[in-house]
Nucleic acid binder design. Structure first.
Lengths: 329, 329
DNA sequence: TGAAATCTTGCACGCGCTTTCAAAAATACG
DNA sequence: CGTATTTTTGAAAGCGCGTGCAAGATTTCA
């Protein structure tokens, strides 16, 4: 078997022209059924598959979609990525995975991916500049954002309803009689962090309340533990800590245990996302369900819609959230 | 700005031939420094980047590497994938992510990736047939296996020392005086499952012991809980449960809590891999550290070495493991 | 059976790029 | 200053594929 079998080899072996081979692999092309079958059989025997790279060159689609994901080892990102990749490849696309390096330049990564003639890009990490959005548009590769919205920039996005989610959580806490509430935020300059905090403050002010303390972590379990210890040791009597995501909430639960405080009796802790591990462990989390599958689906829908109609109006989809009541609050 | 700027456009704008543009972008090519600079400047201004798809067609490398990962939402797979992707892209490769669907055909996926002229494939999930290994070789795209070994088939692989890991664990349990030991295995037909179980039985027989019970889960937390409840409720007095991975061990810890049994006093539980979450929660796991970063690095080294020397002898790298002593055993 | 309509097929071109080759320019050396 | 050597450059030939076009084969219909 040769190192690389091309359409020419198949044509020769099947006694037809090279064009016929190409047509045999193109559904709906003008070939007699008999000949197509024959060509396909020969191709099979020779182990031939059309070179998708070469095909992409002729103007036909490459099927490549760039996916920029955050730190995959974090539960939410991993969960989302899994759905994204699954949906993508079951639709015949190939995900080109770009890591959003710490402090790494998403712009540069997308730029690089563009050189592979990707048909589109799904960005679920880092922050995108208007500039890169324009580059994508110029290349005809639509951009879809997940979990972040680039205002008034013509970029489609899908994002859960952070504000409503936090309203649900705050309502519950207040109804439980909690009044001394602290906020543990995530990485600064993060869209989710900003919207979620806004949601908390809105809901609180509706009850005439304000945050008693504000700390900031980096969305990781470890930072949840650290900041949790700090919050609970500050001498200020709190009765609830609202965290910007589940991982940090889990860390805070741990911190409470280390401080000998009972959750939820002495202190309530809430998360956000409802990642799989939120339901487990010492204290199952009361949290907000962020529907990943629906998110992934919507992102693809947006992408395909824009490929089909590049000029359609920018669309920002807000997927719905629901309160998940477990034991931590 | 045109929808797609090509080398021709740049050549025209810079007043040189298209070949010059190509050379300007090829390090070490024969171009005068002055002209290269000029061309690069014009290219920059026009927003030109060489089309990597077209470049790949000319026989130069595409830089694409297929990565087949398992269920990304599982901690170990996510952790490994993160390292893999990071190392890959910091070396200038682009990971093409292929999901190993449940019951999905790894063969078919790789076959598809081959059509993208990938330079190699790293398989960390599913099981590969000899057949697909041959196809890869024929295409000149080396295959590297992670965590699984395809005996006598000329496929390079990197895999941790499962046997030794289990010896370490069993030694510790026995030294603690535990004798009534059960095994909770993972998905059947899995290389890790088989080797790890073998390791346990070897070590046990060295002490003249045998397993008191054998159950099987699917490497998930949930199955750990289910089987843990079953094992602990079977009426048979156990003093240790050795699990095939951390996730199941965490589930068993949970099961013990539900049964009102104290870990490690009444029952010891051990994991394998030392995923980040193993150190957390109600009962930090005593486990075996599976060095992911080293694994990822070795896999790339193997890949590159074989690309460079296709005929080199098959190499199977066993990365070392260490015992991580925490509280669960 | 013959002409018109319909399929089927092969040729040749182009996608955007790299690279060989030979010609042209620049440099070296006597 | 002339020739030998080296460097720089452009023309052209692919890489593997899809597709428009026109010629050839087949079918249809009168």
């Amino acid at each position: 078997m040769s190192i690389r079998v091309t359409a020419d080899d198949v044509a020769q072996a099947a006694g037809v022209s090279r064009a016929m081979v190409s047509r045999a692999f193109t559904p709906g092309a003008s070939v007699s059924a008999k000949k197509r079958e024959h060509v396909l059989a020969v191709a099979q025997a020779l182990g031939y598959r059309p070179n998708l790279i070469a095909r992409g060159l002729t103007g036909r689609s490459t099927g490549l979609i760039a996916v920029v994901a955050g730190e995959i080892s974090r539960p939410y990102e991993a969960w989302l990525l899994e759905h994204l990749v699954f949906e993508l490849s079951s639709r015949g696309y190939q995900p080109l995975l770009l890591p959003a390096l710490r402090g790494g330049n998403v712009t540069e990564m997308i730029d690089h991916a563009l050189a592979y003639q990707v048909e589109g890009a799904i960005v679920a990490a880092g922050s995108v500049s208007r500039e890169i959005a324009d580059r994508c548009r110029a290349s005809g590769a639509p951009l879809v954002l997940i979990g972040r919205v680039l205002e008034s920039s013509g970029v489609d996005a899908v994002c859960c309803d952070n504000i409503k989610g936090m309203h649900l959580l705050v309502n519950r806490l207040v109804q439980q009689g909690r009044r001394r509430i602290a906020w543990l935020g995530g990485t600064e300059d993060t869209f989710s962090d900003q919207e979620r905090r806004l949601g908390v403050e809105q809901a609180l002010s509706h009850y005439g309340l304000t945050l008693m303390a504000v700390h900031r972590g980096d969305f990781s379990l470890q930072s949840g533990l650290n900041e949790g210890l700090a919050l609970l040791g500050a001498g200020q009597p709190l009765d609830a800590i609202i965290c910007a995501n589940d991982a940090m909430a889990l860390g805070v639960v741990e911190a409470a245990a280390q401080r000998g405080m009972r959750v939820p009796d002495e202190i309530a802790v809430t998360g956000f996302d409802d990642v799989p591990s939120a339901a487990w462990g010492r204290c199952p989390l009361t949290t907000v369900r962020n529907p990943v599958q629906e998110t992934a689906l919507e992102a693809l829908r947006l992408l395909e819609a824009r490929v089909k109609t590049p000029t359609r109006a920018t669309q920002i989809v807000r997927v719905g959230v629901t309160l998940v009541e477990r034991v931590s609050a």
